[in-house]
Design a protein around this nucleic acid. Structure first.
Lengths: 95, 95
DNA sequence: TAGACATTTAGAGAATCATCTAAATCGATC
DNA sequence: GATCGATTTAGATGATTCTCTAAATGTCTA
């Protein structure tokens, strides 16, 4: 969970996640979108991957990245917990 | 928005947010909860404050911190945008 | 298997960050 | 107004992070 938040703390990585929401993309296609070297993007992709936020799959010469919605959901869960819901008031787990 | 994510990338700061969900707390009360010096906690509080995630108010000798739910909501908004909703499919803004 | 392309790994440098101790500020009380 | 308690500010240090260039790896095709 901590790794997820760390991964999300960088604007480039958040942008990558937004791109992957549209469709799966190869590492090269992702790199094209940024004014940064490919190794740097590769580093960011690795950070997202080890946080479990994205998945990768080799497809021949290319490596295709996709969003792991499950893990993103978990992070949203943290926020919902912090914000509380209608069923569960601040810290009150009695009901 | 970037500052919010940066602020949330630290476990101590996320824990502070969770504590403030229970009730408003003074800087000292917050510091008590951690095995870290008060100046360090003060630094974290400042980080949360300048990200807009918490609010502070001087009450006599003490300074009371509280959660700024509005800004936390904004961060949740980012996630909902990434995850999509039932009304709005991946990148499809046509409907 | 040689060459070309896609991607990652390695290593380095500059910047940012978390934490500490020591000192300063701010408000209350005697 | 001198002192006490609560909190922050300043300054320093070690660790982590972002980015780069250069080199390595993996895969396809001729």
């Amino acid at each position: 969970m901590n790794e997820s938040f760390k991964a999300l703390s960088d604007p480039t990585r958040r942008q990558i996640i937004k791109l992957l929401r549209e469709r799966d993309l190869t590492a090269g296609e992702i790199a094209e979108q940024f004014s940064m070297t490919k190794p740097s993007i590769s580093h960011h992709l690795n950070s997202l991957k080890s946080a479990g936020l994205v998945l990768d799959e080799r497809r021949g010469q290319h490596i295709v990245y996709s969003l792991n919605t499950t893990v993103v959901q978990e992070v949203v869960g943290w926020f919902l917990e912090v914000l509380g819901t209608d069923d569960e008031k601040k810290g009150d787990v009695s009901r």
